[in-house]
Simulated assay, not measured.
Amino acid sequence: MSTRQTVTRLRVTEIFASVQGEASRAGLPTVFVRLTGCPLRCVWCDTEYAFNGGQTRDLSTILDEIASHGLHHICVTGGEPLAQKGCLDLLTALCDAGYDVSLETSGALDIATVDPRVSRIMDLKAPGSGEADKNRWDNLPQLTARDELKIVIANADDYAWACEQLTTHALAARCPVLFSPVAGELAPADLAEWIVRDRLPVRFQMQLHKVLWADARGK
């Protein structure tokens, strides 16, 4: 009896080299693998072009293109990369190949099965996103010191909500926490001043790629 080997295939919007624009790896030359599709529709989303389209590719060809860039840091992003089952295979293959791997994920899908060698950069959606009801709260206990939690903040109400979650769930004791302003909606200086005023145990961040190029080529 013959056995049929399953080939992992993923729908890919783009693969490109840039500098990482967010989290603790900001500024590092990185290869980004942007997978297609997302079950969320955050009102401030800056990668809507990844919701549809893309090209279906075998895992081996994806790995070959990544290797061609000659960089050590790899970021798998979207869209929502975990919406594709093959994403788990991609992450493990990248770790096996010796890369430093991070995953950008919305927090709406289970992160427990992600390879433990991957740094999970997980969102917690504030009310201003329009998708706060999609937060998967049982992901929080899965976070470790090698992961990071990001809250994108659109206004003072979002900030108050984020502060409440910070305390209620002891977020800073789990992993580094990042507060980021929505571009064009909340003045970065206002958020930075609030964080300092309230002595929060979080890192303020801006999207470096938007400062440099005003687009999404760093997340």
Rank of each mutant, 00 (worst) to 15 (best):
I74Q: 09
V7Q: 15
L178A: 05
L10E: 10
D89A: 15
P81K: 03
L35E: 01
T3P: 00
D58G: 14
V196Q: 15
L200I: 05
G37P: 01
V7N: 14
D147H: 13
K219Y: 15
T47M: 01
T3M: 11
V101M: 08
W137A: 00
R57P: 02
E22A: 03
A189L: 15
S102V: 11
V202N: 11
Q55Y: 11
P181A: 05
F179R: 03
R34G: 01
K125A: 01
A17G: 06
L140M: 09
M122N: 09
A156G: 04
C95S: 13
I15W: 13
G107A: 05
E65N: 09
A173L: 08
I111F: 07
K219T: 07
R9Y: 04
L35F: 03
R9V: 10
A183H: 09
S24L: 14
V118G: 10
L10R: 11
L140N: 07
H73V: 08
D110Q: 12
D64G: 08
R197N: 12
V118W: 05
N52R: 14
Y99N: 14
A173N: 14
E131M: 15
T105L: 08
L90N: 12
L35D: 01
D138H: 12
V33Y: 02
L71E: 05
D158I: 02
H73W: 13
L166Y: 00
V177I: 06
R217A: 05
Y49W: 12
A162R: 07
V7R: 15
W161Q: 00
P127H: 07
G98S: 12
R25H: 15
L28W: 10
R146K: 15
V202M: 12
P127Q: 04
A132K: 04
L200W: 12
R57F: 02
A214V: 06
P116Q: 14
D123T: 05
D190P: 00
W137F: 09
A162K: 06
D215A: 07
C175S: 06
Q205G: 04
Q84I: 05
P176G: 03
E14H: 06
M1Q: 09
T144I: 10
L149G: 02
V182P: 07
G53V: 07
A156L: 11
V76E: 00
L63K: 07
I62T: 03
A154P: 04
A97P: 11
A216K: 10
A50S: 10
H69K: 08
C175Y: 03
A154D: 04
V76W: 00
C175W: 03
R203L: 12
Q165L: 02
P141Y: 15
V76M: 03
A108H: 14
C95F: 03
A183R: 12
V101D: 08
R4P: 07
K219D: 06
K219W: 15
A156R: 14
G37W: 01
A187I: 10
M122P: 07
G98K: 11
A126F: 05
A112Y: 08
A126R: 04
R217V: 00
S106H: 09
K85I: 07
F204G: 02
S24E: 14
R199I: 07
G86W: 12
S2Y: 12
R217T: 07
Y159D: 04
